[in-house]
Write a protein that binds this DNA or RNA. Structure first.
Length: 597
RNA sequence: GGUUGCGUAGCUCAAUUGGAUAGAGCAUCUGACUACGAAUCAGAAGGUUUAAGGUUCGACUCCUUACGUGACCA
């Protein structure tokens, strides 16, 4: 389609030169798709030229349109509505475009001139509780953005930075030590991450009890929170951990090991993966070195109490703590170390951090601090800041128990897909194993699409009923379209109709066919834009548009009953190409599509 | 208090980055299966784009103010 637009733009330039004897820079010639209610496929807005050409917008449109019809074979007709020149492109051009599309090798990179060596950090869980709905949006986004960037020919490494140390981890450990009786995931019959989550909750429960007790004894609220025995013990444990206390470290290893097994299982289930893991326990010391470096360079300063700060007022930010008075690290300390490690490992020209928008300020600070340190990789850092997921009941709050657990949610969407499939009686001829695979594909397709179709930057509402819906603007709608096309292709194969027949004798298209070809032609532009803005939502919308356009063709024209052999061959080829477009764009979202459903 | 994001149909989301009569899905109503897969398609209804001003050929989009709502920083 780019070629087609290039040719058109060149012709438009020539038209303006010939009719109005003026030059217009090519970037000023912006073509947009013609709105449905008017004839044509491309529209030129002529308002911007009224000044330079000294004519009215309609006059300009008429002049250009007339010249194009006379001199440019691509343009078969035009109409002018106010300042809009609508161009009708000859069907032969659309057939040629289609022919080029289907001959493109699968997986050929889309050249965008964008970054070539990318690191995408996503997921990045804490090891004190299982993954929840918010992590799912994060995971699906990260995976999809990585795939989209790969499609532009970039080398992409997906990394997971595990937050495996700190006071919150010690809380779970402490509760386990006190109430666990050596329980293991195997004994308890639950996943390791859920087991640890259980003890984290237990900590909170007993801790709050102690705070209440102290308050009842007349201790002030903030003092009670700091002085509660369990909090003090957790802090002791953190110090012991940092001092490498053998017993504490060994418990930490054991419990984190259980969590990792649990996470791994979840990652496999939801179909995401990582090329490399980083652990904050392995990067925070390097971060401390960077703080030292900043002190030596004189870009950081030490306060009287010994804490280390950076002044970012020049950058429009504030003063920021980098190291506590007791020498222990804060979040940003380890982030400095991780950024450096990642650069050592991958020498990226783009480093994406998939992190919720509540950390906007933090990420600005990180980038600014790295710039202060004069790190070459500071500018390559990009915060893919996504909005939080709300529930119909409001915000998810772990303290109020309103958190939607990821594993449970996945089970529910798969069960819903199973129920719907059984109700429709579509399991005929499938083995139990194939059926289970299908339910999984559909359930996850619904959930992933639901979370990815919204602009990442925006906060979104999670409605449990809509997330498992299989109709309308959903993943399963698109999957269904693919399955239906597959049925057609199977039949075509049985009938011996080739998908790559020559189409040179085809000169006329049905309106719906033309619209579908135009959709198919947008693919490269959509991926380019999605990569630039790091927005899988654009790809999600595109996959839907393609499926929708195909379904219209399907009801409007006949395929196997078509008498004209060329038209029949074209429709089979169009079906095949549509299936390919659906499969690849859904693939960029991490969603698989079935052959039958 | 300071910084910052958001506000579009009853609900959930779009709107090619300043372009035409603001589009989809859900929900509601109507129509299309003895056909190639109805998890589909077609149609109806639904809007002062929170409000008021401003910028210009043109504003959901940019600017100002107010209101509502969220996040972050103390």
């Amino acid at each position: 389609m780019q070629q087609l637009e290039q040719t058109l733009k060149a012709a438009l330039g020539a038209a303006i030169k010939n009719v109005f004897d003026a030059e217009v820079a090519s970037p000023q010639l912006t073509l947009q798709p013609t709105r449905k209610e008017f004839a044509g496929q491309f529209t030129l807005v002529t308002f911007p030229f009224t000044k330079t050409l000294g004519k009215g917008p309609e006059q300009i449109g008429q002049g250009i349109g007339e010249w194009l019809v006379q001199n440019e074979p691509l343009v078969k007709g035009y109409n002018v509505v106010k300042g809009f020149l609508n161009l009708e492109i000859a069907d032969t051009a659309w057939v040629e475009l289609f022919d080029r599309l289907r001959q493109q090798p699968a997986g050929a990179p889309i050249e965008t001139g964008g970054p070539q060596n990318v690191v995408v950090e996503y997921s990045s869980p804490n090891t004190n509780k299982p993954l929840h709905l918010g992590h799912l949006r994060n995971n699906f986004l990260g995976y999809s953005v990585a795939e989209i960037l790969k499609a532009t020919g970039a080398t992409v490494n997906k990394v997971n930075l595990v937050n495996d140390r700190g006071i919150h981890i010690c809380k779970s450990m402490l509760a386990y030590q006190q109430y666990g009786n050596g329980e293991t995931p195997q004994q308890a019959g639950i996943k390791g991450d859920h087991l640890i989550g259980k003890y984290y909750v237990l900590f909170e429960k007993h801790y709050r009890e102690q705070v209440r007790q102290l308050e009842a004894e007349g201790v002030a609220a903030d003092v009670a929170k700091r002085q509660a025995p369990m909090m003090l013990e957790a802090q002791d444990m953190l110090r012991a951990w940092e001092a490498n206390d053998e017993q504490v470290v060994s418990l930490w290893r054991q419990m984190n090991g259980w969590v990792y097994e649990g996470f791994h299982e979840t990652y496999q289930t939801i179909g995401v993966d990582f090329d490399k893991y980083y652990y904050e326990s392995g990067t925070y010391l390097l971060g401390k070195e960077r703080v030292e470096e900043g002190l030596q360079k004189g870009v950081f300063f030490r306060k009287d109490d010994g804490s280390v700060w950076v002044d970012l007022k020049q950058e429009g930010l504030d003063e920021k703590l980098l190291l506590r008075a007791d020498g222990t690290s804060v979040y940003i300390t380890q982030d400095l170390g991780t950024a450096e490690l990642k650069y050592q490992d991958f020498t990226y020209d783009l480093s994406v951090y998939v992190i919720a928008d509540e950390q906007n300020y933090h990420m600005q600070v990180l980038k600014a601090v790295l710039k202060k340190l004069d790190k070459p990789y500071a500018d390559a850092i990009y915060h893919l800041s996504y909005g939080m997921v709300d529930l119909p009941s409001g915000k998810m709050k772990s303290r109020e128990g309103t958190v939607v657990d990821a594993d449970e949610l996945v089970r529910e969407v798969v069960a819903a897909a199973q129920a719907a499939t059984l109700e429709k009686g579509k399991t005929e001829g499938l083995t139990d194993e194939q059926a289970a695979e299908l339910y999984h594909m559909l359930g996850l397709g619904a959930l992933k699409y639901y979370l990815l179709k919204v602009d990442p930057k925006k906060r979104m509402l999670f409605n449990p009923e809509e997330s498992v819906s299989l109709e309308g603007h959903t993943g399963p709608f698109i999957q269904y379209s693919h399955a239906r096309i597959s049925a057609i292709r199977r039949k075509a194969a049985e009938l011996g109709i080739a998908e790559d027949a020559s189409l040179t004798s085809l000169t006329e298209l049905h309106d719906t066919e033309r619209e579908l070809v135009q959709e198919l032609g947008r693919y490269a532009a959509v991926v380019t834009e999605a990569a630039r803005t790091q927005s899988p939502a654009l790809v999600a919308q595109y996959a839907y548009d393609v499926a929708k356009a195909y379904n219209r063709v399907y009801t409007e024209v006949e395929i196997f009953r078509e008498a004209d052999a060329t038209k029949k061959a074209f429709r089979i080829a169009l079906s095949a190409q549509t299936a390919r477009a659906i499969k690849t764009s859904m693939g960029l979202l991490g969603i698989q599509v079935p052959e039958r459903m």
